[in-house]
Design a protein around this nucleic acid. Structure first.
Lengths: 219, 219
DNA sequence: TAGATTGTTAATCGATTAACAATC
DNA sequence: TAGATTGTTAATCGATTAACAATC
């Protein structure tokens, strides 16, 4: 009766903040902090207390008036909501420099996430092993994916090849795609796509800089 | 009188979509498309037409009833709003695998963005050259940054070192930071920070998958 | 002219913030 | 008990969507 977490749709803005709370709490825990209040979390993360409280409420976390939230319990609530409790195995396609960087990223392990294997169309990449992850020929993807029941795919190929890779992933049983290619993928709506568009993201910074420094228009 | 674009604050949700339009239009242009309607853009990008129209309006773009928007003019409006018109030079700190991936990312050039130099504290990294970008000793950052009037910094160091690097950047004249470390940076509010938190982003996908496949709770 | 599409104003929806009650 | 903090309900704000007018 303790773990039957009600599964409900969390508003996207909140969902985006939850991992930030989790990372923050990891740091607090390491520093030996036992309890923490919304006010402190908000102050340290540049938010407002009531927003933090509402967000945490959605994870099922409960605090205590006067003392705040117990760090360990709060982390458990967040961890469960964010899916860190279940092991997540991903297959990555495109072992270019970005793909390799993701393969070598140690921190995913802390969240029970791992890249089980990477795949690449080029002979040159196949056979490499980065951070313990082997690079296999792309042709092996469908059979391995089915056999290992892998449900998460990561796309790190150039824009031109992304849709083709997505199609292959979907037909191989992938149900959630983390897409680093700057294209809008066309997939069945049973498949979840999350786009990571680095150039698009950087553009936001350029615009913010420009609007806050209008004098840079001279020259 | 043609280029005196009114500089105004664009709502963040819109700002996040603008680069997507731009990337889409790049593709249309390559395919020889001259004009495009909001309806088509919306259909291809999974949005609704009126939203696209409102977004484009904020860039100062004007369309023509019946034919839609001229692709080339629309791209110019977006390009100006997103800051692609001015050359943007960035300094990157942390030449690990992610840093190297960014250095090697050719696409930035299309947007007039470049990583002028990378910096690393470790002897091992210093002296490398990736994608034409040299890796220099971290100690050179302040003087070079001042001398070259670089205003954009990219942080690709581990979480523990990120605040220290941010402090150094700010005191060296950096005014906008693209931060890949999973920490909330404390900087003067004249400095703009844009966070790129890959683990946090992936967590969103995990949650979406979990809420859309509640049966995976078994086992 | 008729029809398609842009441009604009009004209505709706959802998230944030404010106000207050509950509790340790 | 008093005070700090959580929990909750109501008000505000901003973005999305709907409705309609303008125009090529």
């Amino acid at each position: 009766m303790d773990t039957d977490q009600k599964i409900m749709q969390i508003p996207l803005p909140t969902l985006k903040r939850l991992p930030i709370y989790y990372q923050y709490l990891t740091k607090m825990e390491r520093e030996g902090v036992r309890d923490v209040s919304c006010a402190k979390i908000a102050r340290d993360l540049g938010l407002v207390a009531v927003q933090v409280r509402k967000d945490l409420q959605l994870t099922g976390a409960v605090g205590r008036p006067k003392t705040g939230y117990q760090v360990s319990r709060l982390m458990r609530a967040l961890s469960s909501t964010l899916g860190y409790d279940n092991k997540t195995e991903m297959f990555l396609v495109g072992a270019g420099s970005l793909g390799k960087a993701l393969m070598g990223y140690k921190r995913f392990q802390e969240y029970n996430i791992g890249i089980a294997a990477a795949f690449d169309a080029s002979e040159a990449a196949v056979g490499l092993e980065i951070g313990g992850t082997p690079v296999l020929p792309l042709s092996k993807f469908p059979s391995l994916c089915h056999r290992m029941h892998v449900k998460f795919g990561v796309i790190c190929v150039p824009a031109e090849a992304a849709q083709e890779v997505a199609d292959m992933m979907v037909s191989s049983g992938i149900e959630a795609i983390w897409n680093f290619a700057p294209v809008t993928l066309d997939v069945p709506d049973t498949v979840i796509v999350h786009n990571e568009n680095l150039t698009a993201s950087l553009s936001i910074l350029l615009n913010k800089y420009k609007t806050s420094h209008p004098e840079s228009e001279r020259d």
